[in-house]
Computed example of a mutant assay.
Amino acid sequence: MTATRELLPTVAPPSGACCAPMVREAIDPEPARELAHAFKALSDPARVQLVSIIAAHDGGGACVCDLTEPVGLSQPTVSHHLKILVEAGFLTRTQRGKWGYYAITPGSLDRIAESLTGASPLGR
């Protein structure tokens, strides 16, 4: 079986230039640090899975007691991962009795996507 690849057209750089010009502004140093911090928080597969599970819950959020089994980790380990995600701004935490409930921080995932596409800077 032979795979074919479609080549994208190339744009020739202006004469005398070694590279094609940028088509949008690159990210500034401070937003880049913030974005790297966010990526670091999402760099663990268990954290990505936790964000996905919490995002799939109905509006009330997900109890930490319901998050340990799906990721196959102990409650203290899950709590540690959740703390990192809260500190990075991806999750909010509310206390109900002895259990913590977690929900996606509105707009937190959109801000990551926007900062990569240049639609708007991170944190604005």
Rank of each mutant, 00 (worst) to 15 (best):
Q95R: 14
A36L: 15
A36T: 14
R24I: 05
S79N: 14
F90C: 05
E69L: 10
T77A: 12
D44Q: 09
V23Y: 03
C19L: 14
L91T: 05
S108R: 04
A3F: 05
P21N: 03
G100E: 05
W99Y: 10
S115I: 04
S15E: 15
I112Y: 01
A3C: 00
V23M: 11
A38M: 13
A46S: 13
P29F: 00
A88C: 03
S74Q: 14
V78H: 04
T105H: 09
E30N: 05
A36M: 13
A17G: 00
P29H: 01
T10V: 13
E34T: 11
P29D: 13
D58F: 06
R93Q: 14
E114P: 00
V78M: 07
I84P: 01
L109S: 02
R124E: 15
L85R: 06
S115N: 08
D28A: 10
W99F: 08
K40Y: 09
A12T: 15
L116A: 00
P70I: 07
G97A: 09
V48C: 10
A20G: 02
A17D: 12
G97D: 13
A38N: 03
P121H: 02
L91M: 05
L109N: 01
C19D: 15
S15C: 00
A113Y: 08
P29Y: 01
A32D: 12
S120R: 13
A113F: 09
E87V: 00
W99Q: 15
V64A: 10
R124L: 12
I27W: 03
G97Y: 10
P14L: 12
Q95N: 05
I54R: 02
F90R: 02
A12G: 02
R24E: 11
D44N: 14
E25P: 01
R33N: 06
G89Q: 06
T77W: 03
T77P: 04
P106R: 10
A119E: 13
L50G: 05
F90K: 04
G16N: 05
V86K: 11
A26S: 08
E69K: 09
S115C: 07
H80T: 08
M22K: 09
L35K: 01
D110E: 14
A26I: 07
V71C: 05
I84L: 14
I54K: 00
S108M: 02
Q49A: 10
S43N: 15
Q95I: 08
A32G: 07
I27D: 02
A3N: 11
E69S: 05
T92C: 03
I104N: 04
T10N: 08
A32Q: 14
V48S: 07
A46Q: 07
F90A: 04
R24F: 01
T77C: 01
A103H: 08
L122D: 06
V23G: 11
I84W: 05
S79W: 04
G118I: 05
I53F: 07
A36I: 11
I84M: 11
V86P: 06
E30G: 00
P9L: 12
A36C: 04
I104M: 11
A119S: 03
V64W: 02
A41Y: 04
L91D: 04
I104V: 15
E114S: 06
G107A: 12
L67K: 03
P13D: 06
Q75L: 13
V64S: 15
